[in-house]
Design a protein around this nucleic acid. Structure first.
Lengths: 260, 260
DNA sequence: CTTTGTGAATCTTTTCACAGCC
DNA sequence: GGCTGTGAAAAGATTCACAAAG
């Protein structure tokens, strides 16, 4: 949902579809669970169920990585864990810096599942001088002034932004200038970055709004069932358009023209 | 990325594509910013830039809602804010319950942008009896035993799960039994829910893994440029497959057969 | 002249269904 | 017999490009 950037116009490198990449972590999680239970092999059907997808999709996804299964048997769990980990680049260590140590930043720093898979919180950075030195999750917070040096010294290439929205773009620019090429943005802002930098966003508010959309549908569905254009639903006086021309909202439109 | 469930086989109701729905909150945010700056109208080009998409996509998206623009002029900001809000169901109040008040749950409870758009934290629920009564973000934490009653009393239809992964499915089941039909899941677990319930997930670890994938590509690209199968990269001894048959990983495969 | 709204073309993703292999 | 791997078909999303409207 986020990036789509290709930092080189979709060169015919080893092309794994983006949708597939986004599911590999899911498979990996399911496989890790099986591995811990010492399950030796798993079928596409079983694994798909554990990952919450259908088996055809899973098989197609795996086919982009190579032929790692055995017909009539399934997939070797350990082998597949290794292959997917390698494909995702998790056989190496990724130092990560979190910028903006408020409630959310601190929560992420404390989050266990973070370190579990190759990711290591290498630095915490905040603009508040009062926080400098205070340890959060055992890691001392450092001041933004030193951002550049902190990034270089730790070889950070992945940055996590948990600042207030107003500071996000500036922080982003500084991270990029310091050499960060992947950013996970929790601030509700659209970040603009140069080509070659990937941004993914996580936005609570957006997720809730998407849920609200569907929720509303469900509520409306109970009442409908006849195809008629139902009566109004305008609880508050909606704003009137500047030029009240021919609008054609498919249904539930503004209730006729209203005086301002 | 998350739901895909249709709780009725994609009935020809007012069909707005899922991809469009996922972008509406983005447009709304950009529009709200314009509204606050009292900008009266905006072109698809400008708005698209502010939302971080291209203008053709934006126009197509809006076309599903109806014809709300004026040719040669653009879109009326206030009018569009209202229309999108209504479409997303944000003209009504959505009481939300957060279950699992650890670091993350508390951070979300404190998160400002939460309340801003129709969402209201109606209840905080945790399994730890010691937390009961303690206020977090001004809201007293209640015990899981009362989950059922809390959900009904507050008319909650959207639940947020921030429990440890082991508890997530159970909490989910209880929420659904109590009447919740939309769930935002922060726990790294695949939730199974009955038809008619929507689940969206937010997973930090997955996002980082996707970034790592692309990051790895970038690093590899510098070195390559010749099409040759490069030499190994196996830092650790990888697991050997049970039946070491003909695998054909497209490149960077396991370094020949190894004795266990 | 400017900018929307939208068919048509293109690209991506998912699903189907079955040949091929164990 | 069971299960993977994959072409081919279908569905969905994005982009193009331009007629229609102001």
């Amino acid at each position: 949902m986020a990036t789509g950037r290709t930092h080189r116009p979709a060169t015919r490198s080893r092309g794994i579809p983006e949708a597939t990449v986004a599911r590999l972590p899911l498979y990996l999680r399911a496989l890790t669970a099986l591995s811990e239970r010492s399950v030796p092999t798993v079928s596409s059907e079983e694994l798909a169920a554990a990952a919450g997808v259908n088996s055809a999709k899973l098989r197609k996804d795996f086919s982009y990585l190579g032929s790692y299964g055995t017909r009539g048997v399934g997939y070797d769990v350990e082998y597949l864990v290794y292959q997917i980990s390698r494909e995702l680049g998790l056989t190496q260590d990724w130092p990560v810096a979190i910028v903006g140590i408020g409630n959310l930043g601190a929560a992420l720093a404390n989050y266990g599942g973070f370190a579990s898979r190759g990711f290591r919180v290498a630095a915490l950075i905040d603009a508040d001088p009062a926080m400098a030195g205070t340890p959060v999750a055992g890691i001392p917070v450092q001041h933004t002034d030193d951002l550049d040096r902190i990034i270089s010294d730790n070889g950070v290439s992945i940055g996590v932004i948990t600042t207030p929205p107003g500071a996000a773009q500036q922080v982003c620019d500084r991270l990029v200038a310091a050499g960060v090429t992947s950013i996970l943005n929790f601030a509700p802002t659209v970040l603009s970055v140069p080509d070659g930098v990937d941004v993914r966003k996580v936005d609570l508010s957006i997720e809730l709004q998407i849920l609200a959309f569907h929720e509303q549908r469900k509520a409306g569905e109970e009442a409908s069932a006849d195809g008629g254009a139902s009566d109004a639903e305008a609880e508050q006086a909606p704003p009137v358009r500047a030029t009240p021309t021919t609008r054609k909202g498919p249904d539930g439109d503004m209730p006729a023209v209203m005086p301002a």
